[in-house]
Design a protein around this nucleic acid. Structure first.
Lengths: 242, 242
DNA sequence: CGACGTGTTGAAGGAGCTCAATCTAAGTGG
DNA sequence: CCACTTAGATTGAGCTCCTTCAACACGTCG
């Protein structure tokens, strides 16, 4: 791997997850023109309806995507971490169909979308890796639809906690069973389609049963297998092993 | 447009929706190697866990994608119609993360996935159109997540009926407000995260209020604007106009 | 210190579920 | 052409999971 200290190294790491990239391919990714910026906690990266001309890569921190529905309710669609190309979707689709917001203070790199597509089609391996990345994203959306549509509160919550553990672990950030998850209970509610009150009770219940401990923003999964079972969780939809 | 009678014409029509394709591009799409087949109503096109080597285009009829969760519940993730490349996702991701099933008897064309990717990267306009197609698919997933996560039964149902109307209309099949929708109430339930009993009551209620009439399998939207409003429906997520 | 964001807990209510019976329409075989 | 079957639609009654509303606790930060 070329220069792990390079700004876009997290993005390269992520793309390499999906396809093998040659030395030149790797170099080309790292040389993508970009501009870095720090986004304050809670600030918007893209707003629903925007016509972004740049794609955004998360270099550090967390971000999430969400939609606001007619009655004022909000649905969080996915949570993103270091290395995620968090807004290829909106920029390639030309008009954003959802909001992207910083969950914590976050370092991001903006890349002109034309540079991204040019690279994708001049270097098929990179193009395939990017396409694959957006496909995995869609797979996660499918799992979330099933999660909020057909699982009860306890299962949903357990599922979400498992997903975060696996993805953070895969991104090389933490151990599977102990991680920092900077989401409030209200945000967890918006991610699971519940109310914050019920999220509270559900977390308490999981805690009482000895499956997971959550204090302030840290999560400690005490019984991974039991939690995964309770959460109807199978990593397959994350496509980590294909 | 080249030869509207060609087998793959519906796929070409769909791709042309997303990007302008040159005469040669169009020809190249139509000349994709393929094998057609008729899939009986209710038969599976792909099963969760399969490793498909061919992608599947719907030439006629309807299909839907779904997931089965731990407690036996089923969540329908999207419904597909003529021209939809119904399984680019599963074939490009190498392992299927959900089922694809024929809703009605359906004519399909199977295309080797290698032929698809070769074409995508040898002809960037086609590649971009295909990528775009999968991105729109993901956008629909996002809307569905919000639909089942944050809207009440009545709104969900109205939203679904509006989506079908717009998409069928866009595929050139029918008028916006009157179409055949061959789904049972149980399938509508699995698409909306409700039970069939409650779907029945919800449809009755929409009917009573004069918004929509549904007899056997036909849908007649009597008050489009009112239904769209009741369904918190905005076509933007379908990206038809970008 | 006071204020604000977040977490916690109780009590009451409701949207949607479960269970179960009945009805209807479209076959299907004799 | 009719008895029989079967998949789906319809309706009622009771229940429960989750929501709503409201109060209070806790920590942090000006």
């Amino acid at each position: 791997m070329t220069s792990p200290n390079h700004t876009l190294a997290p993005m390269l790491r992520k793309l390499s997850r999906w396809c093998t990239l040659s030395e030149e391919d790797q170099q080309a990714v790292l040389e993508l023109p970009h501009e870095t910026r720090v986004i304050g906690k809670g600030n918007y990266i893209v707003r629903d309806g925007d016509k972004p001309t740049r794609s955004c890569v998360l270099l550090s921190g967390f971000a999430y995507r969400h939609k606001v529905v007619g009655n004022g309710g909000r649905q969080i669609l996915s949570v993103h971490m270091t290395g995620d190309v968090v807004d290829l979707q909106n920029s390639l689709l030309r008009t954003a169909d959802h909001d992207v917001q910083a969950l914590t203070e976050a370092e991001v790199a903006f890349i002109p979308v034309d540079a991204v597509t040019d690279l994708a089609f001049s270097r098929p391996s990179i193009g395939m890796a990017m396409w694959y990345d957006t496909l995995v994203d869609a797979s996660v959306h499918r799992e979330w639809t099933a999660n909020v549509g057909r699982r009860d509160a306890r299962t949903r919550m357990a599922h979400l906690l498992c997903e975060f553990g696996v993805r953070l672990h895969d991104a090389g950030l933490v151990s599977l069973c102990s991680y920092e998850m900077p989401m409030t209970q209200e945000q967890l509610a918006d991610a699971t389609g519940l109310t914050s009150v019920h999220v509270n009770r559900t977390l308490k219940s999981l805690d009482r049963d000895g499956l997971v401990q959550r204090s302030s923003r840290s999560v400690l999964i005490t019984e991974w297998d039991t939690l995964a079972k309770a959460g109807d969780f199978d990593t397959r939809y994350l496509h980590l092993a294909d």
